[in-house]
Design a protein around this nucleic acid. Sequence first.
DNA 1: ATCTATTTTTAGTTTTGTCTAAATTTAATT
DNA 2: AATTAAATTTAGACAAAACTAAAAATAGAT
Lengths: 231, 231
Amino acid sequence: MLNKNVFLEKYFLMTRSEENYLKTIFHLGGGDSKSITTNAIAEQMETKPSSVTDMAKKLSEKGLVDYVRYQGISLTDAGVKTALSIIRKHRLWEVFLVEKLDFTWDEVHEVAEQLEHIKSEKLIDKIDELLDFPKYDPHGDPIPTKDGKFQERDEKLLSEMPINSKGICVGVKDSSVPFLKFLDKNKIALGNTITIMDKEDFDHSLRIRMEGKEMRISHQIASNLYVKKND
Amino acid sequence: MLNKNVFLEKYFLMTRSEENYLKTIFHLGGGDSKSITTNAIAEQMETKPSSVTDMAKKLSEKGLVDYVRYQGISLTDAGVKTALSIIRKHRLWEVFLVEKLDFTWDEVHEVAEQLEHIKSEKLIDKIDELLDFPKYDPHGDPIPTKDGKFQERDEKLLSEMPINSKGICVGVKDSSVPFLKFLDKNKIALGNTITIMDKEDFDHSLRIRMEGKEMRISHQIASNLYVKKND
DNA sequence: ATCTATTTTTAGTTTTGTCTAAATTTAATT
DNA sequence: AATTAAATTTAGACAAAACTAAAAATAGAT
């Protein structure tokens, strides 16, 4: 009826499903005007390629993605902005759940998937403030700022660190529940300082010192842990 | 496929819309096996009677309401239990927004309407704990316990209090945004002790003393404020 | 350059929740 | 008891978001 409402409806009122598509496309790298295939999106979202095509048309209509039949999908600037605002909400909620409600690493994702769709700018800004404007989420992933800026980290995989170097544990590459539970069980937490004592040529396992204790970790673990170089 | 999943689907997985219907029916008094009319529900939810009929059938199928054609709708025990769990979530989130995020009375409802549908028992229990198990929400309405018990209050409307009596402000009858804004502006807050100094026969307005200040309030205001008798 | 195999799209269907318009039941009035 | 008014339900339609199956386009291999 009103022009203003048409505008609002088209550009600001996103459904949960639309938001999930944008987020997925961003995570698959579609933010750098790189085309993501229909199949890749379908696989990631555990849905069918035909459903992705339908949504591609819809998001293209709204100016959030660039879509050419058979050529794949990439985010427009508006699409990136929207995706980042959802990721920002997701990661802030994750911090909230861990810091304020004592959730463990592996429990937060599912709940944050729901909370990220709550529509209230004031709410998420206040949560940000309550948490004292955190820069990283519990998995070590950077939290975009309100104006959509990312603060990337100078980080390396633990497996790539040289012998005798030190690093602070800042994130995980694999954020699956089994891996996070493993870390919890072995008291490997973000912020811990890790010293690489020795590397085993045979199986690429590492001997490390952490929180005063020495332990051996497999290559598989070491290649899924990010550390920030310390010296 | 599995029997267990059929069970879960039918009895536990509620859609947002189903939850809103149950909540509305409860608020209209349908919890005491009192029949609520199709029209009343439609009006409250700003929808059409035919939509209510459709949902009545669906909820009846699920064993959450008793529904007889042309005779109205009431909640079953299971329906009451579900409604109370949603109301519990709504009111706890309201407390959270006011206590932890400095929302004002009039801002909380809209956001709580969204948050009440988040599905995670652990989340709401932890929020409850974080808030130190509050008994009332910011509007003074009682918060049902985890096992669905209500703690009703010994409360009166301010307009019904005798001269020279004292009361503690515990809730509002009208929770519309304009009224809540009025209260904020005039520094009338939950917990304030109010002494009734005088009542004016002509317009039923009241002269009261609150927080050391004397003021006059109209009958309309006084008949929308609940107080707990103090002496 | 042609032929497969794969990917992607189209067309048509389903489910959920809504709507309108028409039909039916209940309630109220004479 | 008959009639009218109001409330309620049915039937049929639609939009969103998914699906299946069939058709079309692309890419890879010979």
